[in-house]
Design a protein around this nucleic acid. Sequence first.
DNA 1: TTTGCTATTTATAACTT
DNA 2: TAAGTTATAAATAGCAA
Lengths: 193, 193
Amino acid sequence: MEKKKQSIGRQKIKMAKIKNQSHRQVTFSKRRLGLFQKASELATLCGAEIAAVVFSPGGKAFSFGHPDVEPIVDRFLGRFTTRNPSAFKGNDYLSSQLTLVLDLLEAERRCGEVLDQSKKSSGHRRWWEARVDELGMDELELLQSAMEALKCNVANHQAAVLAKNMNFSSCLGMSHGENLIPLSSNPVFNAGF
Amino acid sequence: MEKKKQSIGRQKIKMAKIKNQSHRQVTFSKRRLGLFQKASELATLCGAEIAAVVFSPGGKAFSFGHPDVEPIVDRFLGRFTTRNPSAFKGNDYLSSQLTLVLDLLEAERRCGEVLDQSKKSSGHRRWWEARVDELGMDELELLQSAMEALKCNVANHQAAVLAKNMNFSSCLGMSHGENLIPLSSNPVFNAGF
DNA sequence: TTTGCTATTTATAACTT
DNA sequence: TAAGTTATAAATAGCAA
């Protein structure tokens, strides 16, 4: 004796943008939660640090972070990191230049890990690829922020260099987050190049 | 007639850190890929913008971004945005900093592309990946030369920048202003220069 | 809109190569 | 040690309230 199905169950769907808006909204909510749950499990099971940021098509922001979004993305982007800021003593030119290059190389290293396929195929142009004369004041201020962060980074690296007499071990490894210090609490931020 | 099972199949596991290291490593790899796949599907199905950053317990970084990690997390963190665009017009210092950052980012981008090609297959360590304390005078001078070249580049760009009036529309795709965070909450800006 | 319910698809734990 | 297999666990599409 056959029981009538109460549901047709999950169906396979095409991997393309869902056209029906309400359907898309429901799927967005459910899958967003699912994504964050997966992220949480990965963090728990493997002891990983994970940050995830999602913007809905309408521009609403959602995030997951274990333990927190900001330090993870800062670390990934190479911003606001330092190893021994209080040891800063001077501004030896070569050291600062060296550390600046090290920053570039560090940034390079993290770029190599990016997986996204979509940028390969699209003609998308990143903001920093714009010509300077196309930038507006918003972007200039943006760049200024980046510059300040970079300056901080350089100063911090410089501190490490000087403190260890050109014998520091972890500028490129950056294997653990225990030395990361927020920019706002960094006493050497105002040091010049 | 019963067929002998070839596998016991997937088993339920306790949601806690996996103790066996090799098992944990396998799980990390598989679930990391699964997470990025979920993120990719969410982006495709719903037109969402998603950034995910994962650090393994060993400190290795992985990321997924659609379309790119950096603009998404910057937008989320409220960095690089402002409602007061008039403050720095014609500022020579700002212009020079701007061009320096552009150069840094350009160099970073170029390096990232190079890294992509070769890092998978070889365990070869490039000279700039060496620890600083392993570098000899030759390498240090090389770094110095690279810096000098960079400086020269910056100076050239600067001339072009100063000759222009900054006038443009947003290059950042910041079309959803409701998520922007006021500049005053940005530690970078509060640090001054 | 969010929540709950199946039936089905998808992810993946344990194993194998 | 990474990649493939299989059976079971988990996620979720389509409905319904």
